[in-house]
Design a binder for these strands. Sequence first.
DNA 1: CGCCGAACACTTGTATGCAAGAACCGGGAA
DNA 2: TTCCCGGTTCTTGCATACAAGTGTTCGGCG
Lengths: 231, 231
Amino acid sequence: MMTVSTLSDDDSPQKGALHAKSVEKLREMIVSGDLRPGDRIRESHFCKAFGVSRTPIREAVRTLAAEGLIRISPNRSPVVADLAEVDLGHLYDVVATLEAMASEQACRVITQGELVEIIAIHGRMLESFERGERAEYLKLNFRIHQRTVEIAGNPVLHATWLALMPNMERARALANLDRARWLGAVTEHSKMLSALAARDGALLAALTRAHFRNGLKVSEKFLVPGAPAPL
Amino acid sequence: MMTVSTLSDDDSPQKGALHAKSVEKLREMIVSGDLRPGDRIRESHFCKAFGVSRTPIREAVRTLAAEGLIRISPNRSPVVADLAEVDLGHLYDVVATLEAMASEQACRVITQGELVEIIAIHGRMLESFERGERAEYLKLNFRIHQRTVEIAGNPVLHATWLALMPNMERARALANLDRARWLGAVTEHSKMLSALAARDGALLAALTRAHFRNGLKVSEKFLVPGAPAPL
DNA sequence: CGCCGAACACTTGTATGCAAGAACCGGGAA
DNA sequence: TTCCCGGTTCTTGCATACAAGTGTTCGGCG
């Protein structure tokens, strides 16, 4: 679960990266919703889709299973994990705890330069919000959270946190379908940024927990049967 | 490198579990110290050792890499992750935070039956301590921590916590080489059990954090160069 | 004697073959 | 109609074959 995916977006013709690329593609397809929860992942299908053999696909599936995005049963097709079965409430609780911990640390060690960097990202995020560019907003939102955790300076915390992110992003995408919530999230982010700038760890931690609590309430609305379908 | 009990626990003729068993065996070998940090994991070697082909071994390696026990580089032999590079201090911090969270939850929801169960395990752990059976003690110790996290009733928390355990166990095994620390840990566990029985979540959380802080101090002693060799 | 290079052995990455089990489909009986 | 049963087809689990990259060693050369 602690994949610190060092491999990035390099499109190297490198021979030794077929399986890593399969991981990336599959994860992207799951997180983006291209693959829906419950969808079966038949190896042969993705072999043809990605133009590789079964071996890299199988290894990619193992990796994603370790991340919790896929469920595997012996002799059965792996399936995309259900967001509901992931139990959003519990997921939010854990992530909130981890980010609260990161917040306190970050307040203690953040440099002026890093603060400026985050403020810049925050600014761009606000612009995305005003233009209604959800995808861009989500990406920048993620960047802010990630930079905060990184700045905390605990690699184990970062890796643990990162492992929870794919499912978290799936849920956040749902929550932000609610326009009112989206506005609320933006407001909260501004307050959190102030606390960070003031290096008020306790306040930031509290704001962080509240931020997650509020997000959870909205996400849950979209998971009850008959809820508005995403996308 | 000691011999792996090739015919360990279950000798199921089950067809669909060769790779899962390889994961178990490899993890056990790493956690127990049978495989030392930096050791290269050559697929062919373990093929012969486990009597399987490369495919299950490769998949097992991916899984363990995702757990952070193994590091893989393209076209190079995977190696057992170095405990020092895992950064014990950071690891302890995160686990302490997670278990503190679990403690508070557990105090809120634990049943009388579960409490009795933990007390029983605790009793057996004390006996192991008095008999100086380190392996047995560690196993029971782990069981107590695990049951507490389970009882907290947050599956995401449990999974996240579990993912950190392999490295944690490796470190704990080192810490308990120090007899004084062993005694201290036993004492702390007794206090924690009292807090749990009293359902005092705040106290238990604080004790839990202290428990980890103390363990860390001793573990670190064994990681400086020239420290007493384990085993 | 030491440095450099090329062939060699070894290792991992990927593809494919084969067998066992699961899902699926259709037919027959209650 | 619906449920159950059998066979067919698909899918996974494991093994193996082949290709490509890496480290190593031994011989030649400066």
